[in-house]
Nucleic acid binder design. Structure first.
Lengths: 201, 201
DNA sequence: GTCTATACTCTGATAGAC
DNA sequence: GTCTATCAGAGTATAGAC
């Protein structure tokens, strides 16, 4: 396989990511992807047989990067409060670098559930471990007792939502783009504060 | 205008809502809407000139019901903690009755931002009022000082997110559909608890 | 591997009969 | 108002030359 081939394949994947993420599967056009990659439509089909297959390749890659970092933090050897602090900062930082990923996943999830289901292997996150730690620290009086499925979802909700509902929030609070960027950054410490205050006994 | 006409128009709007909400603008097919309404495509164009206009009609209706109830609670004459309790319970209850609306709005927001922008009149929510109340109650020591744009977004995030990320959450925590329904219901009190504990001085 | 040209299907929209 | 039939354009996919 020639070097040119490798490059083209990556070019296509990069272009496809951008278009699919921005428009979703149904809104994306093969022509737009070809343009973005600086090639023609025929070549897309040469490398990936169909639009579906191309989407799968993109989605796999995106999905693959969704959980591992999360899992690593969740399973780290840290006290819960440190873990939360670390997790939120890392997670919001990642989102700031990939602000359109969450909406893309949510969109796929809801309008093309079948397409998503073929990619679900398993998140790989073990909520039992998290629950165990919460229980232990609750006994020690470090935090209050709580269900893992609420704590984790609460935290992730607050991290992600401002990225997917941006236009609405920006409208309600009348922020311009620069202000919203600052707002998103400020949420890192804000969410940590909010959560820690809530779980402190 | 005949009664039959009125009925047909409503039939179309109902069918169109269902299809658009499930598939998004790009994924929706006029044929699917016609089938759902029990009529043919031509009649869709007779009542609404184009797919875009039909979508606008649907989206207006959905968007119109998004904020008013919210606004009413936010501007009610209640102490902040009561207000939050009332708001969360009402809001999650509304979502349980319309579980696909949030994903639909988020999808439209992100893949067809222009389409959404034509509908933004103004949320009508005045965050200044909320901030004023927070400030006043903070002085009285009823709650801790906080920025309205964080408190409100935190609350709404936690209410909405489990509805748009359902498949992922359900997968991680290995819940079946019945369990997830119970989970969603349990979040009403869970979110209230979580927030009140956080904002208590 | 990459291109141009084209086949074929789907879909939004219209014409015209009833 | 409602239907059948059909058009025009867009979009995915393929054929075939280089």
């Amino acid at each position: 396989m020639t070097i040119a081939g490798e490059n083209t394949e990556n070019q296509i994947l990069t272009a496809a990511s951008q278009v699919f993420i921005l428009k979703g599967f149904d809104g994306a056009r093969m022509q737009a992807i070809a343009d973005q990659a600086g090639i023609n439509k025929a070549l897309l089909h040469y490398y990936f047989r169909s639009k579906e297959k191309l989407f799968d390749a993109v989605f796999s890659e995106v999905a693959a990067n969704l959980f591992p970092a999360m899992k690593q933090v969740i399973e780290a050897e840290l006290e819960m409060k440190e873990k939360i602090t670390f997790f939120v900062k890392m997670y919001v930082k990642t989102l700031l670098e990939n602000p359109f990923i969450p909406a893309f996943v949510i969109n796929t999830l809801n309008t093309n559930p079948n397409r998503f289901l073929t990619h679900i292997k398993k998140a790989g996150i073990n909520p039992m471990l998290l629950q165990k730690q919460i229980d232990e620290e609750a006994v020690l009086g470090l935090i209050r007792p709580m269900k893992a499925e609420h704590l984790l979802v609460n935290i992730i909700s607050m991290c992600i939502f401002p990225f997917v509902a941006r236009p609405i929030i920006q409208n309600i609070f009348e922020m311009n783009n620069d202000e919203y960027q600052l707002y998103l950054e400020s949420r890192q410490t804000e969410i940590v504060d909010f959560v820690l205050k809530s779980i402190t006994v």
